[in-house]
């Protein structure tokens, strides 16, 4: 008990905090492509069905002209010739990144010993802007297979070869899914609409469920416009008419990562 008291005092005033939260931020400039849904079309959508969808791409993309590998065995990555990488801009510098294919050796090592997720962001940098990549950079764990957010880059790492590359149209680059989804609160007659990029909400709005026989409710989100005609409580579905589908636009997404480190002090009895 005394030891616990002392440990408690020690922990309270002299040791680092028991839980420490750090926030990391990164900006993703993206080009949201125009939706291909036809204006004036009307449909009924169940829960988790996207009302409108498109993709968001980086404003810059490049195509690799040769294979390249970099990194130590445990986390080495490989990009293949012909692969299109997305542009990442930070600290006044462009790098070109992909959600990497782990090499067979590193994937095996990771699975067996290190428990490292197999989706990693890896980037290439051309320091002298001569059309040839000079160094490799690790961007950490990918949030998922499509999310381009890399919060910081670690490197430089030597490349197996220095591959040349060529710029391609942004549309040819990797895309993050953009979806307009809906949800209804149990306690209100309002439908909430969210625009999500790779499952992360970037915009939201709401519309009241129109009473039977009354005019549809119009709502706008990210330059698009829709009509909410009806909500079917039994089927849990909404009927939506597209007035103006998601337009092509340029925006900057702010991604945030919250990391909480917890330290547990265990009293030791001797």
């Amino acid at each position: 008990m005394k030891s616990i008291f002392t440990a408690g005092l020690f922990g309270l005033c002299c040791l680092p905090a028991m839980a420490q939260t750090t926030y990391s931020y990164t900006d993703l400039p993206v080009l949201i492509q125009a939706s291909e849904i036809a204006p004036d079309s009307q449909a009924t959508f169940g829960r988790k069905e996207a009302i409108d969808s498109t993709i968001a791409v980086s404003p810059r993309s490049v195509k690799l002209n040769a294979d390249v590998t970099f990194g130590a065995a445990a986390n080495s990555v490989k990009f293949n010739a012909g692969q299109v990488l997305f542009g990442r801009y930070e600290h006044t510098v462009w790098t070109y990144c992909g959600i990497s294919n782990m090499t067979a050796a590193s994937a095996g090592l990771n699975m067996l010993f290190l428990q490292i997720p197999d989706k990693q962001i890896a980037c290439l940098h051309d320091a002298d802007d001569d059309g040839v990549f000079d160094t490799g950079w690790s961007g950490g764990d990918a949030i998922d297979g499509t999310n381009m957010a890399a919060f910081s880059l670690y490197g430089p790492r030597t490349l197996s070869a220095q591959p040349s590359y060529e710029h391609v149209a942004p549309e040819q680059g990797p895309g993050m899914p953009v979806e307009l989804t809906w949800a209804k609160s149990r306690k209100s007659g309002v439908i909430a609409f969210s625009l999500e990029v790779s499952g992360r909400r970037i915009a939201q709005t709401a519309a009241a469920i129109p009473a039977k026989g009354s005019a549809p409710a119009t709502f706008s989100i990210s330059g698009a416009q829709y009509e909410l005609s009806a909500y079917d409580a039994k089927e849990k579905s909404v009927t939506i008419k597209v007035l103006q589908p998601l337009p092509r636009r340029f925006t900057t997404l702010k991604a945030t990562r919250v990391t909480t480190m917890r330290t547990t002090y265990v009293p030791v009895y001797r």
Partner: peptide, 21 residues
């Protein structure tokens, strides 16, 4: 526009060694 300190002797890199906003 970004106004900052630059180290002209080194190329800028993703780790921002030669640039400070």
């Amino acid at each position: 526009l970004a106004f900052g300190w630059l180290d002209p002797a080194q190329p800028r890199s993703p780790s921002a060694d030669s640039w400070r906003l």
